[in-house]
Design a binder for these strands. Sequence first.
DNA 1: TCTCCGATTAGAC
DNA 2: CTAACGGTCTAATCGGAGA
Length: 420
Amino acid sequence: MKQQLALVDCNNFYVSCERTFRPDLAQVPMVVLSNNDGCVVSRSNEAKALGVKMGQPWFECKVLAEEHGILAMSSNYALYADLSNRVMHILAGFSPRSEVYSIDECFVDLTGTPKLREVSYAMRERVGMWTGMPVCVGIGPTKTLAKLANHVAKKHPRSKGVFNYNALSEAQKAQLLQRIPVQEVWGVGRKLTQKLALHGVSTALDLREAHTATLRAELGVVMEKTQRELQETACMDLQEVQSDKRQIISSRSFGSMVSELPVLQDALSTFVANACTKLRAQGGQASVIQVFLQTNRMRKDLPQYTPSLAVPLPYPTNDSLEVNRWVAHLCERMFKPDYLYKKAGIMLSEISPEAHRQGDLLEPETTSNARLMQALDKLNLRYGRGAVKVSSQGALAGWQMRQERKSPNYTTGWDEVPLV
DNA sequence: TCTCCGATTAGAC
DNA sequence: CTAACGGTCTAATCGGAGA
């Protein structure tokens, strides 16, 4: 009856991806940086041991890094996505029911599987053997407890990468939950940890045992669900097919500050191309387009300006050229000279399935770019993103993000495979 | 008073 | 050498406007 739900999570995913093709880096303290080489988003165990924090701005680590020779790499999402797909494919082979939860995590329903223990180790070994990716497996009766079990598997070397919460006695469960700070529980972040502390809740066990009605009233339904999941009542089911996006955002911080309108519009045309490609890939069309600009929020000494403007379209579209015209227009309307812009982006929302296109009774059917867009997507898929561009799309210098230490696209670009 | 909607908040990773 | 802090997405909740 009880679910045997496994959460498989890759260890230090981005760092492990980089190491897959650079075995010489196996023992090197290293980190992978966010876009624009801004923050640390993945750390090797060695870097963690040296005190580098998750999300820490890289410039803050510079001294420590030089002292200990910490290697920093720019993020290479093409590589990570490709390795992720391989890992997920392998995991899907272990059960007819699984959910790709994030780029490095997968829920696998092992309910009814005989020899659960052997299968869990087999998952680790097969993924390791076929991709080189180290993973840990946590098993529990609910998603929340599977996540918690995974946390235990990662933290305690004695578990050898697999931990099964379901195999514990009631006393052992209580003992374990008591040792886990409540902020480690899935869904409990910084703010909620503070609020929970006010109610005397500081461990996972405290949360499990808290008065439900009070919890609900003071902290909302999400927290109640979390509590019930800790009590082994499943409130979140497996999302086997990932649903279409309800909104699509494309934005970037710039490598350096931008003050000219045409450069902003050039950056935005790149964002339009990305967002519309995604939109068409899911067979959607958007009826609200939003553009936003941002000055550098870290520079308190400079004047700040963070405008945002949305336009509801009379009919939905997924035509890059049409979207780009609106975006350029919105940008021009918000643009003020004398500000130094650090970031810009677009958002497509009110997304509906393409099939439901509503013809406009008053507007004659205009020439559609549908086939042009189809051709554009095909060419970019075949010859690489940016083979065919929207407007100037990236031609103007000055806004591209910093990416000073990016690895080659080992798995997706023939011309980038190093010749040994 | 109820409902709707946009903005804000919180979280994940 | 400089200057220097990510990007996407969802759900819940809040607060004001309009019915």
